[in-house]
Write a protein that binds this DNA or RNA. Structure first.
Lengths: 334, 334
DNA sequence: CTGAAAGCGCTAACAA
DNA sequence: TTGTTAGCGCTTTCAG
């Protein structure tokens, strides 16, 4: 069995409090410090964070709920968040919910039982009702990428509408008028925002958005491919397309190859995220990219901040950070 | 403050043991069951897994240490493992170590303090010395994708050598003799295996492996691009290339586009992993793919099995599962 | 089947 | 500074 502070106390002849104090950076007489360190070394003592957690009512664990770890956008953010939190002593417990709201609710329950100190979530639904238990317990919740009704908390978003608007404007400027869009699931916040950016750009150019030109994918590769196929079938006059996430961008490209359509001669193309993929394509794709590192940094800082402030008395107003996207020029627009 | 079983006991007038028994699926008189459930509902009771963990000395948490969550091969496996373990009541604590051995050792320590019940690891180094603390504590360790010296435990691998050999044989059969390879880091197990498969195939065909034709990348996109550049520069007579992981495959393709080399006319190409990317490329890439789901399933089952068996007396011999890869035919070999 | 009591390893008053 | 003591919320004997 592993050694406990009791063993250390016995070995050194000191009291429990002294050992505990040493462990928590308190002041200990030099002579005793040496003794304690020797005992720790000798008995291979390792603090038991579980016991500590029970006592302090803080587990130093942050729960993370995401729709899909396989989604590169998620993965990039999570790696970074995990790194930042761990460097502050926090472990993360990640739950991949496969874009399933029911599973998300289960995950919330799961993490609640495990008494995580805070929750970072990229939610699939529209309402944050099921997060109440967290906020009521005084535990911080930080939303990534999507906004939720029925809940007060911090969130970090990107300017989805602006990003889509900008992309479509570029296509308009290149002279296109029949511009298709592969949008995300209708019930997802970001997808709606991006779609509305698309519409806004068209309207500003005096073009009425045509329902036939919008295909609703499901943020997956397959969904992107299907949507692309539909778009091409329904719109022989379409000369450009804007795809609104990475997985669907890849799917669309696969489909375009399948159909033998040439980019940009026959179809101008603007995709989303993953600069590397854009560079690996022929021709290089023009894409909208999101600042994943910056998102991660903001999320972590917000979380860490709330965690600290829980110690203190007052809390600051909830923040909504909105970051801007970038555009990476390729050769897919003509 | 959250309700505890004490509160439930008080509310129902029952003893602590009864509540605990109910919570753990024991037999409780029907009448009391109803009472308990009502109290739980009313007081919003949620079991505290931390306290439970302290008492039972089991946290129901599995630590996972990987080199890079951003690496799609890792991400695919981890998603699946996480899913399987969670469905058995286990949470996962993931540590991304950025292919850094020092960070891996820190992660081991980190997870040890948190008293995880088992460890799943895709190690960067060659020795498993630093995992001793785990095995000594009687906690199961399962290795993914790489084998380690100085440690006895289960592992799940793929037949790397065979996969590389097969790929190179295909190039040989197509008539190539000057075949390049972009290998992974020399100190990584899988990289060595794949390189040795490459050599084996050549030797069997009576060709002496030429050091100039082997470029050692670092399993990243950038590394793949650099290696490709070097290979082309040093070997004007090279007519085919085999790339040994996904990230480097993408990097190589980016570089090939950059250099304006045409596949397969000027260069035949076989890549690794990620069928989707292979399909999205022009022409479609021929690739070796690894069975990530199957790896995940094996890893989870091995871990779950060990966890159970810890309850019982004896333990089975350590297993090494070796899975086979597949080959997906594209149009990149001529 | 149920109640009482002990204790998992740690922290945090409080005294000394 | 250091020692003593009392729990954190749960499981688990052991009686009843």
């Amino acid at each position: 069995m592993a050694a406990t502070i009791k063993d250390i106390a016995k070995q050194t002849g000191l009291g429990l409090a002294t050992i505990s104090s040493y462990l928590n950076g308190g002041n200990v007489r030099e002579k005793n410090r040496v003794k304690i360190e020797a005992a720790i070394e000798e008995l291979h003592f390792e603090v038991n964070e579980v016991a500590r957690g029970l006592k302090t009512n803080k587990t130093k664990i942050i729960g993370i709920i995401i729709p899909e770890l396989n989604n590169i956008f998620c993965a990039e953010i999570i790696t970074e968040v995990e790194d930042l939190l761990r460097s502050h002593g926090y472990a993360t417990m990640i739950c991949d919910c496969r874009t399933d709201e029911r599973r998300e609710e289960e995950a919330v329950e799961f993490l609640l039982h495990r008494r995580v100190d805070g929750l970072i979530i990229m939610p699939s639904g529209r309402s944050g009702k099921y997060l109440e238990k967290f906020t009521k317990a005084g535990k911080p919740v930080v939303l990534i990428d999507r906004k939720l009704k029925d809940i007060d908390c911090d969130s970090v978003l990107v300017d989805n509408e602006g990003a889509a608007e900008d992309a479509v404007n570029r296509l308009l400027k290149a002279g296109h008028t029949r511009i298709g869009m592969i949008a995300g699931p209708k019930d997802i916040y970001t997808a709606q925002e991006r779609y509305s950016g698309y519409c806004k750009a068209l309207e500003q150019a005096g073009i009425r958005p045509d329902a036939k030109l919008a295909a609703w994918g499901n943020y997956t590769i397959e969904g992107g491919a299907d949507a692309m196929k539909e778009l091409v079938r329904e719109n022989p006059d379409m000369t450009a397309v804007f795809v609104s996430n990475y997985e669907m961008t890849m799917g669309a490209i696969i489909q375009i190859n399948e159909l033998g359509i040439r980019i940009p001669e026959e179809l101008s193309f603007i995709g989303f995220d993953n600069v590397e993929f854009a560079k690996a394509s022929i021709p290089k794709l023009s894409i909208v990219t999101q600042p994943t590192k910056e998102i991660a940094r903001n999320v972590s800082e917000l979380m860490l901040g709330r965690l600290e402030e829980a110690e203190e008395a007052e809390r600051k107003e909830y923040e909504t950070v909105r970051l801007t996207t970038s555009f990476v020029e390729g050769r897919s627009v003509l």
